[in-house]
Write a protein that binds this DNA or RNA. Structure first.
Lengths: 242, 242
DNA sequence: CGGCGCCTTGACTGGCTTCAAAATGCGTGG
DNA sequence: CCACGCATTTTGAAGCCAGTCAAGGCGCCG
């Protein structure tokens, strides 16, 4: 990771970025036409457990993950941490405050992470000049909501094994390099078993057992946080059949 | 319920409507200033089990519930219906298609229902002229996302009793008449036990038992779909303590 | 090399699902 | 208006899945 990021050039995650057509016109020669010039204010650098924003805090910016990953969490009334979502490279972050202007959850870096930072008022002002940007923004919000819906669909499934298979499948889809194979062959999980458990509404031991079970069945290979896909078809079938 | 709705006058649910400031300027003398004049196209009348839109269908409109209630559902791969959300009077509906332009779920009326229908292209065109409308729209989307987040928070709670208490509490908050008592004293559930179960990821028998238990503990009174709040403080405590 | 998270594995318990049947409510047609 | 039939809801009993408690292994960093 570079100590200082060069904002004048698109990075790898820009290829899949939620705001791609609105931001870096990848593939075009110049950057003069970038609708977000002057709006993407500065990069933000986070370390593991650093908080990007906190529940109750005023929403200043919308963020785009460039490198690394974050989780959004709420503190349940009983003190337990609930994981609402994971945010990977290219994904939007910070829209939870859209209704009230104040964040509903904390955003925590799962490791070193860099982000694009878009001051929301500037973004809206720019969108007022360029209607296409509004359309982009709505689409990005829609994708974010779609991920939330997938989360709900996992949680409603009553069998732990189903939830775990769906989680892995969704994560693999999201990390899949743009335009490549139907399913990434391997990935390194940015989050702990406990984070996964609190995301899926399970005990962390259950998640661990679920991974082991998938390995015993020859679907995946697990070594700590490194997961290798051994049988993508079976994984897909597990997700479909429930 | 009137056979034909008078769109020139605000109805009861307009008081809590997700788009209120943008639509009927309730309290003002005239309606000339309504930013949505000409956009709210016509009212839609639905009967029980009628579908407002279906998964895969092209998104034409955004809807606002005037009377009645709807549920949004997906068909799980195993054929089971999953309930993603309930939409009460004044709430927005149809934003699930924001990302792709195609709906991700079905919307089903839980009983007779009437809706305001806002063709999305017209809405965006009008918003381009009136920036404040965009702001309204973002807020409405944010509220919708906030309800989804509450849903996730219920589902992550592992005890069935917690989920049921939270569900009741949230529903009471949402049906509470504008500016009135902290919690509605009673309500008639628009959805069946099975719908609630598929919304909470539980078996319908578990939901029924949960209601009975709350009644035995003196928290609520249950008679079929009619629920009366006997001890609002206890209900709130259940929600907070988990 | 030692300590400390993190992950895995095992045994046991409890809560939820499942299966089953009875009761209640509701709309329809006689 | 009442009787019937169907859908919905309640209640009961039994079995299983997942949570809890506990211990051991692994890898990482100091």
């Amino acid at each position: 990771m570079e100590p200082v990021l060069d904002l004048s050039r698109p990075c790898r995650s820009c290829l899949r970025c939620d705001l791609k057509p609105a931001c870096r016109p990848v593939g075009l020669d110049g950057l003069e036409a970038c609708p977000l010039d002057g709006v993407v204010r500065a990069d933000r650098l986070l370390g593991r457990t650093d908080r990007l924003f906190r529940a109750g805090g005023e929403m200043a910016c919308v963020y785009l993950v460039r490198e690394g990953a974050l989780k959004t969490v709420t503190l349940a009334p009983d003190g337990e941490e609930q994981v609402l979502g994971f945010h990977l490279a290219g994904e939007l972050l910070g829209l939870d405050a859209l209704a009230t202007g104040r964040h509903r959850c904390d955003a925590v870096a799962l490791g070193s992470a860099t982000l694009c930072e878009l001051p929301f008022p500037s973004l809206l002002a720019r969108a007022a000049q360029r209607p296409a940007l509004h359309a982009q923004l709505y689409r990005a919000i829609g994708r974010s909501a779609g991920r939330d819906q997938e989360h709900v669909e996992m949680l409603i499934r009553r069998q732990a094994a189903d939830r775990i298979a769906m989680f892995l499948h969704a994560l693999l889809e999201r990390t899949r390099p743009f335009g490549e194979a139907p399913l990434a062959p391997a990935l390194t999980l940015p989050m702990s078993r406990e984070d996964i458990a609190r995301y899926l509404g399970l005990a962390l031991e259950t998640v661990s057992r679920g991974f082991t079970r998938l390995q015993d069945d020859g679907v995946i290979g697990v070594a700590g946080r490194h997961v290798e896909i051994r049988n993508a078809d079976t994984l897909r079938r597990l997700v479909r059949q429930g």
